[in-house]
Write a protein that binds this DNA or RNA. Sequence first.
DNA 1: TATGAATGAGACTTCATTCAT
DNA 2: AATGAATGAAGTCTCATTCAT
Lengths: 229, 229, 229, 229
Amino acid sequence: MREISQNDHLVSYLAGLAAMPKISERQRESRRQQILEAALACFSEDGFHQTGMADIVKRSGLSHGAVYLYFQSKDDLIEALADDRHRREAVLNSVAQGSGDPLERLHALVRVYAQWLTDPAGEARRRVGIHGWAEALRNRRVRTSVVEGIDMPRALIVALVERAQHDGLIKRDLGADAIARTLIAIFQGFVLQKCWGEEFDSKACMAAVTGVIDGFRITRHDVKRRTRA
Amino acid sequence: MREISQNDHLVSYLAGLAAMPKISERQRESRRQQILEAALACFSEDGFHQTGMADIVKRSGLSHGAVYLYFQSKDDLIEALADDRHRREAVLNSVAQGSGDPLERLHALVRVYAQWLTDPAGEARRRVGIHGWAEALRNRRVRTSVVEGIDMPRALIVALVERAQHDGLIKRDLGADAIARTLIAIFQGFVLQKCWGEEFDSKACMAAVTGVIDGFRITRHDVKRRTRA
Amino acid sequence: MREISQNDHLVSYLAGLAAMPKISERQRESRRQQILEAALACFSEDGFHQTGMADIVKRSGLSHGAVYLYFQSKDDLIEALADDRHRREAVLNSVAQGSGDPLERLHALVRVYAQWLTDPAGEARRRVGIHGWAEALRNRRVRTSVVEGIDMPRALIVALVERAQHDGLIKRDLGADAIARTLIAIFQGFVLQKCWGEEFDSKACMAAVTGVIDGFRITRHDVKRRTRA
Amino acid sequence: MREISQNDHLVSYLAGLAAMPKISERQRESRRQQILEAALACFSEDGFHQTGMADIVKRSGLSHGAVYLYFQSKDDLIEALADDRHRREAVLNSVAQGSGDPLERLHALVRVYAQWLTDPAGEARRRVGIHGWAEALRNRRVRTSVVEGIDMPRALIVALVERAQHDGLIKRDLGADAIARTLIAIFQGFVLQKCWGEEFDSKACMAAVTGVIDGFRITRHDVKRRTRA
DNA sequence: TATGAATGAGACTTCATTCAT
DNA sequence: AATGAATGAAGTCTCATTCAT
């Protein structure tokens, strides 16, 4: 009996050790990413609704059940990708924060987005982004994610433009919000045009964006006109 | 009872006639439109792949078989709607009727798009357009439609910008194609932002576009700089 | 033009004829029965949850889609069978209605149920009934159907027993409801025992039921006892 | 960290020992009961086939693997629960301890069942019992359990009734087996009616059962009739 | 012994399309 | 031309069971 009792204690102790999660948090996150990457690739090629779970399963190298161990449903997967995109893009905006020359920061923001636009490794993400724009029209959660995703840079641009207007660097007859939406729209359109595989000359187009921002600047002509008035 | 039986005979008889008279061309076109409108409404609400043929059939008031008499497949319907001829024709007209001044013509073009963007009756078309943009990523024929749809206005803008540059109205350091793509991108982005339905101030944004075009104009600063160089 | 117009009228007329339901109500009901019979056979053999829709589909001779044309879901099929049973059993109870000798009517009711119990063609229905009894524990709709199914004969028996008690034919010291529940319980238990394939001697058991009812009758012993009290 | 690493080694070492000490028989039985209780609760709520192993695992507080160490399969669990030894033993005891009078013993048996029927703690068992009745229709081993479960009390009742008939206490024109089956059927039906939870007056119904047994007794009327014949 | 992540067959259901009428 | 019942492949998701740890 004494021996059994000792064994019981040992067993309990070992059981306690075994009660730790079977795979580490890092391993779990790695599997999650593995699935998300497979989903990204599939969605990028065929869109959300033309991609079957079987495609994602096959591409992930896991089993059907395993995928559902990490994501509750296909919709969950779609939303996770939307959130993922949301999180990644938040990083892009950081370059615009701070208190330097607002026009310079605006140009910096444009450069970052230009880089994001032209990075070959981001192709799939951009394509999925477009599918997300369409999906946002009918899926509230995706829409929220998308809208919040553009609200962030918009707020930044608005702040920069307002500061620039206050400093007399940018024309005051255009709304800051409208300018922000215009700049964002340009990049949205560029993503579309680029992903459709047209002969999209990124360099020239980025120059045009720079030109657009410069066009917002106050010229002597404007100064005179305003002085006269 | 006897009459119904006679009718049955009549039906069989007519069905057997190879030379059975077809419905008028006008009726045929009307039916086609009826189906396209139903499809437009459905696709606008749920996207191409979340809309079932049954939805379209129900909304059109016709039968499954009837729809397939006018369109070979669901993809056929999608392609028919992705190809938005209306807009292209409107653009053509607007520019054909414009005055000689290329900048004025550019502004006219912008006005046409602005109208298309803000017309409440065009909401469904705009939404379907966005779904088409996503679909263009995986469906070659849809992509061709979409790309051709923007190639036409792009060519127009390029021509106008080149003339304006030649006339010394627009800076020469920006590619005409890049400017065209930028202007088109702006409208694509506006369509997205407006359809997501979040506080999009169309009037202010259109003013910003006008500002963008004005920004492309040559200023004394530019003239001086170029003279010096 | 006149000919076309005439043709249009003809077409409309024929279209009007064709707008009648494609299959007659009788045909539709026949298909429904075809499916219900297949489901009954499958459920009888394997229970509701171990029977796959594929089994029912195969047995019905129809296609997967066709079954779903008549029933919304597997649960719908289960509930339809419960309702079906409900409706069929309602007929059994009719023999007990009327105003004749209550004891005789009770015996008549027993005979009808005995017949229902021993009818070889009803085997599948009895088995499905048992599965329904279990299902009633967790499916509200099935439970409602089952409970209503026994409420009907119970109410009848209660009425007969009360009349018999009033007429001095049955002991008054037993609740009419309890007697009704007891008689119903007997048949429920018989169904179980019979369906399990035990050596169930229907004739002897029915005699026992008759004996039970006779046992409820007032005897001289009771009369004396009541007189004394 | 070093300690954990040491533990890992210890675990590996113990796992490698073929002679790894087993847990005590008492612990093993306790684990088995733990699982059976969890399964009972789950099956009672959702039935055998709507309960997942995951439900049982969660409720038992153990792991999937652990459950499979004690039961080979889900069917194994079902069979273990379908075989309700508790009740059978209670019946045996009650009759073994009864007085010599067969009628009194019969009443004692009824009291035991009445208690089993009304014990609130037995609700889950009764519900699982019903699921077992349905399962018995398609699972040979469950059926064997169930049938054997009623064979034992049936044999007891048959013996008691035959003695009572021999002693002139019960009518001889009813088969002892039929009477036994009838009494058992009554309780089966009562279990159903009670578990469906609709205004089942246990007390009144038990009185009715007593009445049924009394009804089987020989009355002066019967004696006379038999004498005459 | 005990864990729980992983498996994969199979569950229910949908839907684009066809074809007898 | 028109109908709509019928098809059946393919979709998403579940779950009893296993096995590396």
